[in-house]
């Protein structure tokens, strides 16, 4: 067992983790994820794909809410802008998908500046409401701007082909999502350790104190919005490609709640937490399906027609349950388990 943290050169300081086992396991996990399409059937592969692009969006929200402490109830607005940014570029104008992904990040990022501006004046609940209003306004704006967006007719999105690689097959699209998820995770993990990340967290903990330490509140709050919107927009584009058809109807307010649930369940402000939260929330319907199939016929009868209601109630119960009994979320539980494992049979 290690007796302390000893850094002997710069390389060790820069490394994301100093634990050999964490690095090994991460590599193994990576290999397993890359090989997953060979083993999983189409349904399971679809689920893992959903987990991956949801993770990108959730990590985006985490930068804003988890790191910077700015509450957004309008993240679905960035998601829909990202999907449209990609769809308009690729689906309507037929430009290169790479440019599409770029636009999927840039368009929401610009909106992020606009939505972020009130955050300089507003705090907490008031900011949450402004962002929520933004989400509603953006939907109407997209419908009204039908000369750009096709309005209510929606846009068809073929799976992209980039650098000679076609992402048409489910496996290839899965790898594309995997790439973006890993990239998003790397960005999130590294931001934390940079000047930017430390400034974000200082703002979260006490913005007035942060300001007095010389952190430019305006710049960093806007930066948080921009980065968060950019990542969420990419997730929106992936979501759009996954659905292969983009309309405003596909992006309901419910997605915002789902994203909040992911952060709360996983543990706010922790990348690992977001990963765990995403897995749990995306798999929740499957889990409930399995659980209820174990019960009697009466429950199955309910499930036949009321499956989504039962699932939504579970969403609510899980959100409230974690807030009430374990605010640190799954990542807190994971840490507790780890500690118990290492120290057993001693308490600490």
């Amino acid at each position: 067992m290690r007796s302390g943290n000893f850094k002997q050169n710069v390389g060790e300081l820069i490394a994301l983790t100093d634990s050999k086992s964490v690095a090994t396991w991460s590599c193994l996990l990576m290999v397993a994820l890359i090989g997953a399409p060979m083993v999983l059937d189409a349904h399971l592969l679809g689920l893992v794909t959903v987990i991956l692009f949801t993770l990108v969006g959730a990590l985006g929200l985490n930068i804003l809410m988890g790191y910077t402490g700015l509450v957004s109830l309008g993240h679905v607005g960035f998601l829909v802008l990202g999907a449209y940014g990609y769809a308009v570029t690729v689906g309507i104008h037929g430009l290169h998908p790479l440019l599409g992904f770029l636009m999927a990040g840039i368009v929401p990022a610009i909106a992020g500046v606009i939505v972020g501006a009130p955050s300089l004046r507003l705090k907490g609940i008031y900011l949450a409401i402004t962002t929520m209003a933004f989400a509603f306004i953006i939907n109407t704006a997209i419908l009204e701007a039908d000369f750009i967006t096709n309005g209510s007719s929606g846009i068809f999105l073929p799976r992209p082909t980039m650098f000679g690689i076609s992402f048409k097959s489910d496996a290839a699209f899965y790898w594309l999502c995997l790439f973006f998820a890993v990239a998003a995770l790397a960005v999130t993990l590294n931001i934390r350790r940079s000047r930017i990340g430390r400034a974000f967290m200082a703002i979260r903990d006490n913005d007035i104190a942060a300001q007095s330490m010389g952190i430019n509140l305006i710049a960093y709050k806007l930066l948080a919005f921009v980065m968060s919107a950019f990542m969420t927009g990419i997730a929106g584009a992936l979501f759009g490609v996954y659905l292969s058809f983009v309309t405003v109807e596909g992006f309901t307010f419910h997605l915002t709640i789902e994203a909040l649930a992911i952060l709360v369940v996983g543990g706010l402000g922790s990348a690992l937490g977001v990963v765990l939260g995403t897995i749990l929330i995306v798999l929740l319907p499957e889990i409930t399906g399995v659980l209820l199939s174990l019960t009697g016929d009466a429950a199955q009868e309910v499930m036949a027609t009321k499956a989504f209601e039962v699932r939504n109630i579970l969403y609510g119960v899980i959100i409230i349950g974690f807030l009430r009994f374990d605010p640190t979320g799954l990542v807190g539980i994971w840490k507790d388990v780890q500690r118990t494992w290492v120290n057993w049979p001693l308490k600490y």
């Binding site: 609940i125 709640i257 309910v302 209601e309 939504n312 959100i319 409230i320 605010p327």
Partner: peptide, 26 residues
Amino acid sequence: MMGEPIFSIVLVTIGLAVILRSLVLL
């Protein structure tokens, strides 16, 4: 939830909203 950060309590009410909506349908 008294004593918890305000935002946690607000999230609780969001959870409650989801539950009530589905309960009505259920």
